[in-house]
Amino acid sequence: MLLLTCPYCGVEADETELSPGGEAHLKRFGPGASDEDFEAYLFLRDNPKGVHLERWRHANGCGKWFLAARCTSTLEVFGTYPAQTTRPPEDVLEAIRAKRPGWEMPA
């Protein structure tokens, strides 16, 4: 069972109280972008075994979207943080690097 702490209301929420939103930190390509960029933005997603940055919504709680860093194979959670950011905060990055040396943020 996955437990994520919502950074907005502070609840340590059970997975069943949340709804998943897929990969985080996507860069939007809209009007004027090349077809390749637009396709990648719409459809192409990483599917890593290991550290993954994800979007989650506290659907049955405060209703807010937030971001989480977790490991897809061990379900270890490195940290959660508000969604109003384009990259994870330093303390979350530190927590990931401490447990997974050599990990690099995906481009």
Partner: peptide
């Protein structure tokens, strides 16, 4: 506490 009760909010 906002949560779910069985299947509903």
């Amino acid at each position: 506490r906002r949560t779910r009760v069985a299947q509903v909010a």
